[in-house]
Amino acid sequence: MTITRRNLGLLGAAGAAMLAMPSVVRAQAPRVVRYTHFQPGRLDQPKHAAALAFKSTLEGLTGGRMRVDIFPAGQIGPAPQVMEQLRLGSLEMAVVHDGGISGTYAPYQVFSLPFIWENQAIAWKVLDGAFGAEMAEDMRRRANIRLLGHADNGVRHFTNSKRPIVTPDDMRGLKIRVQPAPVFVKLVESLGASPSAIDWGELPAALAQGTVDGQENGVTNILAASLYQHQKHITLNGHVYSLHAYLMSDRFFNRLGNEEKAAVLQATEIAKVIHRGMTTAQDANAEPILKEKGMTVQRLTAPQIDAFRQKAQPAVRSWLEAEIGREWVEKLLSATRAATAG
């Protein structure tokens, strides 16, 4: 066959088109959001139900231009590792509990001030208002992590295998597991018990082996890890309103187009509502849920709770002010007073 100049031109154009094809394919490939959290990958778990809602919403809003891959149950790694990956931009998104955040962004410890919020409605006013926005901007600036929103990790209560706890004096002599965050160590010490910092993944074994007598967590986490199997008693004292934060690498977020950014924010709002609703329902029904699991439940009166507050709050506040500065503590208390009055 004689190759004419015209044929050479056609062959050249075809070759150029073939060379260009990989870049076209790459341009059409979805932008992947790797999304990790620390609860089991089951629909009865608020974190996972919310993650699935985020995935469905974001992929729908972007017409498949963004894809969400979910990694439940800490599959990416422990919280400090996840936070570092978010900071560096090597992980796109995570929902992390409050204790896991503080090692990277210390001011988040302020939410561990005990007995500050009477109910979820007050907490949400503070978190969704000016205080929450100021903290989000500070985290973005200092840690390169974008705080998209807050949801519940459950109102935290004390459980143990030894005896009912009704007064702070009942805590004396008990070995209580706390998450690896110094502020929780100070909280338990202030009530006369012996704190032991143990990672979440090691907690069931520590309770089963008697390494510790008890622990403190919300209903959601007690159910998620079946902690009731090794804990006979729970006291519904609600010492800390624990949080989960929806976090995204700021580097990743800034690479998104305006429509994609808006879709991420909208998907987060939907996930947050589901997450909050499921956790709040479990907290509100703590007594029947945990009695059904075989636990004895102590529901404290307001004066009994105040006895815990009088011992714990001054000690923890003093520690927090020394650790992160008085400004964040004062701002949180001021925002709480305004939310309560409003």
Rank of each mutant, 00 (worst) to 15 (best):
L52D: 07
L243H: 06
R326H: 15
A338Q: 12
N254R: 11
T220Y: 03
E330D: 14
R146N: 09
W328G: 06
L300K: 00
R141M: 08
A79G: 05
A225M: 12
A262I: 06
I145A: 04
A206M: 07
V183K: 02
Q266K: 14
Q313M: 14
N237L: 15
V219E: 07
D69N: 12
G132P: 02
G103H: 10
A29V: 04
T62R: 08
G74D: 01
E287D: 11
R172N: 10
A322T: 10
E292R: 15
A312K: 01
V185T: 15
F158L: 10
L236F: 12
T36E: 12
R34H: 15
Y35C: 01
V96N: 00
D199V: 09
F253V: 00
D250K: 08
M139S: 02
V316H: 01
H233W: 15
D250R: 07
T159D: 11
A123F: 11
N144A: 05
I145S: 03
I76N: 06
L174E: 04
Y105E: 03
E321F: 12
A205L: 09
G74W: 00
V212L: 07
L19N: 04
Y108Q: 07
E216M: 13
D250I: 05
V33E: 01
A335N: 09
T280Y: 13
A50K: 03
G325N: 11
F54I: 01
S161I: 08
H233A: 09
N285G: 12
G89P: 03
L203I: 06
R26W: 10
A302G: 05
R31M: 02
A94Y: 00
A281T: 12
Q120C: 04
F115A: 01
G77P: 00
A312L: 10
A151L: 02
D283R: 01
A123V: 08
D152R: 11
W328N: 08
L19I: 14
M139H: 00
V24A: 15
A79S: 12
R337P: 03
Y105Q: 04
A208N: 09
S90F: 09
R255Q: 13
D199Q: 07
V82C: 01
P168M: 11
A16E: 05
H48C: 03
S102Y: 03
S194K: 09
G9R: 07
V82A: 00
V96F: 01
T2G: 06
